[in-house]
Design a protein around this nucleic acid. Sequence first.
DNA 1: TGTACATCAGTGAACGCGCGTTCACTGATGTAC
DNA 2: TGTACATCAGTGAACGCGCGTTCACTGATGTAC
Lengths: 223, 223
Amino acid sequence: MGKSDTATPRERYRAQVRTEIKEHAWQQIATAGASALSLNAIAKQMGVSGPALYRYFAGRDELITELIRDAYRSLADTLGAAAAEGADLSGLAHVLRGWALADPHRYFLLYGTPVPGYHAPDDTTAISSEIMATLLTACAALVPEAPEAQAAQEATEAPFATHLEKHRAWAGDHPAPPAALHLAMSFWTRMHGVLSLELAGHFTGMRFDPDRLFAAELDALLP
Amino acid sequence: MGKSDTATPRERYRAQVRTEIKEHAWQQIATAGASALSLNAIAKQMGVSGPALYRYFAGRDELITELIRDAYRSLADTLGAAAAEGADLSGLAHVLRGWALADPHRYFLLYGTPVPGYHAPDDTTAISSEIMATLLTACAALVPEAPEAQAAQEATEAPFATHLEKHRAWAGDHPAPPAALHLAMSFWTRMHGVLSLELAGHFTGMRFDPDRLFAAELDALLP
DNA sequence: TGTACATCAGTGAACGCGCGTTCACTGATGTAC
DNA sequence: TGTACATCAGTGAACGCGCGTTCACTGATGTAC
């Protein structure tokens, strides 16, 4: 509804071709990597001449930007939906893992080796904050609200949480307590640590089950 | 000593040019990324014709392989030297971080997004095991040797350590106890999680100090 | 020590390729009267 | 409903570029007698 109601046939056709182009782009990234993404190759795969794609994307960079945007959007929506259905932090972890395993290249496009000279547009950081907010809410639910009296004690026991509390701009106006900020950062880095090594194939030689490593790390993380 | 004594002038010259090529290669990777590495560009930078480099490397792939090998060797030696000087696991963590920060692209070449279609040669996995052995020794030193009586109890308390014990081929013949295996895996994934996100610039928007996050994660890891 | 020979580093031309991107164009699809 | 016009998707040729790699070659460096 909304847009699709007022869309002219031409607009709908355009949107359809755009998604088709992006689908072929993902396919090509999976085969040859993001840095090898080529408009001409996509065009050939679609049975169309190279310049035709310039009707739909201003150039290669805009296509990549759009792919990154879509990927962030997909992750934010997936996590958001899970949270809306009542998933706790542990549930979000498994949703994240499922999302990453479903398309490793998509995960790496967001969190892998940065493409030199490429700068993500501003709105992706907005989606990134949205993801962080979902995480923070789940973290706050696990952290007991500390009475005022404990504040001083916590400051010495959890110096990093206190440090984060002083630099909480990245959390927006989310009312998560310091301990939740810390938990969210640990969640992010640890899950990324296991996932990225797993997806990059660094565990393939070893014979253990990555699933269990993930579970163990998650278990150690939860309070 | 050793090789350099018996090396003819021509052999020494060859070795020197090879390292010079590799230096320019690293420089180029830092500028444009590993996937943009180009023999012709390196040659131009060295003020030499393109085909000249084929005297020193069979082709682009061999050059990349050599860079990867050197990077693994450098990390293994750096950690090994620190361990030999008595560094504990915490010390190794800081050495690892220093090594990664000194040259982020080198770190990503080893642990970043895999280059599609590229397969690392066998001897790099040997160096990889060497690194793991250094880690395992440091981990074993932190884990109390458990008397036989505790074995059954541990099995239920630490299911992943037990799982690793059953699949410890990756640890070679290192005599580390199960808890040390688990600690080493956690060390690897967690340090990588913080480091790779930091090096990829995912913390730049947030204003906190990555140093403190690293310290906090390390602190939470140590028994 | 001096000369004849072998080795080998580096050159320049060439091959075939694919890339991103522009441009003037054709032909089909939609729109307005 | 039918015709005149505007919009726009897609084409094919072209530009300039850089890539990896091969090949026959020149000229300098080392080696053997």
